[in-house]
């Protein structure tokens, strides 16, 4: 009897040891999307899912843990084992939550695997707006006119970006939070607000149809998706920010996990099949890994914190 137990225990030990040494991944990988099914983050992960499953040769389970504007899901991701089998769809929301002081985690508690997609924040106005340029809008506000700027959600990253822009331009806008992107866009189309600050993907269809026109956007340089729209910097406002989406895990991810993921994503990007999906969604592919990614995260977290500090006052 005793022999039997020992041998069973030994078998288990061997199995455990081999599974630890085995190639990553050897079981399903869970990706936490901290928003409900159907949001921008969810679409991003679900669009990548079949491609990643092929490259990683395992099933990817998308788990939507929504609530608190991403706070609930990201808190769960931070608390999970850093074994590479629980990852999260990370985005600006992470830094926004951190900057607004609503959550216990910071971006230091995450290991960022890859940034995949980017979109700019765009300042847009109605097609028949009196404002033709960013400058005319800023001047109007300087002259005491109440310029109403709609943003999606109080304390959202778009809200923070709007505050950051008004700081950079050194004016006061009448910033009006709407519950979400579609409400903000319809307010701008209906002339209920003068301008909006939103992510480029949400604005893609109204900009294409000409119902809204873009005055400026927050990239460092002009982008292929919006070639005619000047950057804030070109227009003389020192601000560059991006809405980014990527993959992150809890701090302490093993190196081989990161390497596997980075090479999988690199391969997918090189094949170009994802390019069309991203284009259709109005997103730019801007992959970033390793130290460059960490630097990018630090810089953008810094900008968000400063602007959010003004918002909280």
């Amino acid at each position: 009897m005793k022999k039997l137990i020992v041998s069973i225990a030994a078998t288990f030990a061997v199995v455990a040891a081999t599974s630890a040494m085995a190639e990553y991944p050897d079981k399903n990988i869970e990706v936490i999307v901290p928003f409900s099914a159907g949001g921008g983050n969810d679409t991003f992960v679900r669009a990548l899912q079949p491609l990643l499953e092929e490259k990683l040769d395992t099933d990817i389970v998308v788990r939507n843990i929504a609530g608190g504007g991403g706070a609930v899901g990201l808190s769960r991701a931070v608390a999970s084992d850093p074994d590479g089998y629980t990852l999260a769809a990370a985005s600006n929301a992470l830094q926004t939550l951190e900057a607004m002081g609503n959550v216990a985690f910071t971006s230091e508690d995450f290991d960022f695997v890859a940034k995949v997609l980017e979109e700019p924040y765009v300042v847009a106005v109605g097609s028949d707006s009196e404002f033709e340029t960013l400058e005319s809008m800023v001047t109007a506000a300087q002259n005491g006119q109440s310029v109403q700027v709609g943003v999606s959600g109080v304390g959202s990253s778009a809200h923070i970006a709007a505050v950051a822009f008004s700081d950079a331009a050194d004016v006061e806008f009448n910033i009006i939070p709407y519950p979400g992107g579609s409400e903000t866009i319809s307010a701008a189309m209906g002339g209920h607000v003068d301008a909006v600050v939103l992510g480029g993907a949400e604005l893609r269809s109204p900009l294409q149809s000409g119902r809204l026109k873009a005055l400026g956007m927050s990239y460092e340089e002009r982008s292929d998706s919006l070639p005619d729209v000047p950057t804030f910097k070109e227009e003389g406002y020192d601000l560059s920010l991006t809405v980014w989406r990527g993959i992150a895990g809890p701090k302490g991810l093993p190196d081989n996990v990161k390497e596997t993921w980075v090479s999988a994503i690199e391969e997918i990007m090189a094949e170009g099949s994802f390019q069309e999906t991203a284009d259709n969604l109005g997103l730019d592919i801007a992959p970033l890994y390793g130290d460059e990614l960490d630097e990018f995260i630090t810089t953008s977290a810094q900008i968000m914190r400063e602007a959010a500090g003004d918002l909280a006052q």
Binding site: G38, T43, A47, R204, S205, P206, Q208, S209, R211, E276, T277, N280, L281, G282
Partner: peptide, 12 residues
């Protein structure tokens, strides 16, 4: 989202 992934841009 499904429309846009298909490359159909809603609008007039």
């Amino acid at each position: 989202g499904g429309l846009m992934i298909q490359g159909i841009t809603p609008g007039p």
